[in-house]
Design a binder for these strands. Sequence first.
DNA 1: GAGCACTGC
Length: 721
Amino acid sequence: MPSISRSQEQKLDNLNEGSKTSNKSLNRKHWILQQRRSLPIASVERRLVDEVRKNDTIIIVGETGSGKTTQLPQYLFNAGFCRDGKVIGITQPRRVAAVTVAKRVAEECDAQLGQKVGYAIRFDDATSTSTRIKYMTDGLLLREALLDPILSRYSVIIIDEAHERTVHTDVLLGLLKKVQDARLKQHKLDKPYINNVVKVDNECHSSNMKFAPLKLIIMSASLDAKGFSEYFCGAKAVYVQGRQYPVDILYTYQPEPDYVDATLITIFQIHLDDSPGDILAFLTGQEEIELVDMLVHERLKQLPERSRNILTVPIYSSLPSEQQMNVFRPTPSNFRKVILATNIAETSVTIPGVKYVIDPGVVKSRYYNPVTGMESLIIMPISKAQALQRSGRAGREGPGKCFRLYPESEFWKLIDSTVPEIKRCSLSNVVLQLKALGFNDIIGFDFMDKPSRSAIKQSLQELYLLGALTDDCKLSDPVGIQMARFPLDPIYSKALILSGEFRCLEEMLIVVAMLSVESIFYSPREKLEESVVIIYEMALLYSSPPVVFYCKARSAWKKFSSPDGDHLTLVTVFRAAVEYREKIRAATNKEKAIDKSLSRWCRDNFINNRSLKHALDVHSQIKVYLEQMDMSLSSCGDDVLQFRRCLTASFFLNAAEKQPDGSYRVKANGQNVQIHPSSVLFRTKPECIIFTELIQTNQIYVRNISRAWMPELSQYYDVER
DNA sequence: GAGCACTGC
């Protein structure tokens, strides 16, 4: 079954390049060859190949449009780096990028996708034993390293978009440095490297195989190669020119007190004074986008008829993909498109036709407090690198303009580049992965940017409490080893392992899959408005408080809700969806028809289709892992108590007790929290709860809550504090 | 009685 992003990307392809069904394939080939030759990187092909031959590690700084991602792997292939069945691996931070680039390169090589050129992302592997150029997500390569610690099948690994510094990229950088060392030592000793390779699946694993040194190429779009070069012991950096049109940068004279208002003014200023061309405005979130959208239309009414030719298009990640696609529709003639976007338009989505960029200089970003383990989203200033990335969006197709809604002096005060993710997220998963890869000394691990000691210690402690680590801080056998194998949050992995003992693995697997995805319940705005009208009419009719009629979505969800809490509610939703799908499958075997039918079921029940599909994918993936570990899918049936016991035992760290004022106190650290109003237990307010999410917004909320099973809990908290 | 930047295994 194709994943969502793949179909999304296919639509993108069609929209961007038009129909590919042309029978003039010769012309197409000729055109592709010309395109390839005209890329800036083409002129330095020989030099690049020489540098890779001479150096084990090089850094390539290439601006957008240089062609480095598509061309370099082909140059290396042609230069013989895939001899003896070796593979060139290229990592990307995003799934869509891995797929689109692989398709493009396969076409350039005149090969069928999945043969010489392929890609591998979670839930979707388009590679074969003949694949020599393999695009993949960086997280997937990390997973591969767990099975083959010296990545023996690869002759070259290219880390693309390294400047983005995702957690996965950072862990990979550290790991690859070690892999290089290990392979170099083995190469010099001239004897087979002994390791715990689990998966032996192709010809390059013959027993007396010698491993050539691993070539490592770090590709970055940012201008500071220094950091990477220093990290890799003075590795050589090569600069490749990009293909970018000039962008005029304009600043304000004074700081703007209200960037939303300033954005609005700028949109109209461009619209009335500047030449034709679409506008891309960066905002921080859905709410802000909807507000600006509304305000633009309000102010348009004040303009003369002939100036009202503005078309607004919002785009943010939780928007259904059909609506996201609206940004690619051609603008009607005489109209100016105004794209109101979050950070999604900074890297993930490239929108054609943009000539003007409006950059208020802020971003909503996740902040993690390692002491409290609490995550919150805060609006903060962007970095210089981000500002450059944003302004670059105006110069893709011709000269452009970027309006920075702050004075130039403020720009120079911005930090150079965004703080790497590894320094601002929970490290439990990173630590578990590194332990599984054989790195015991986490504090001493050679990170490019070291996370704080306290964050590492916090994760070590959590993993110890979950039973993943022994008293001397080593990975425990079998619990720790099993936990590291699951592509899940460590606490969810632990819940799965425990639920085998409690004989409710079937239920816990569903819960874990549902908790691993974005919110399952979805209430579109227009539906809410519809319900507001109903409330209003009802209130007039009955002159009573209209709370009962608050939301249609609510009543749709009611049939799923469980008195025991949100977790069993999720189980009911999942089972209802699967049951419905099977019913449809019995009537038709066309996957498309089944998909469509399930989408309709989701819409009728106010369920987020994308999230549900994702949960189904996670569910089937984890099921395979469980089967490999010989864990049988036991169900507790109607014995809800058994499930509550298991949930309590798994998430005892997340237990909270009711206080006299109706708030809750987290038993593990004494923190005061509230039940989120979206919970089915919001009104019930049980004495003691187990939660699986803690978030800070206007208040500190716990979400996804179930009633705790007190006798089980008392085993963990015997002394009342 | 509330509010969801963006990725990824």
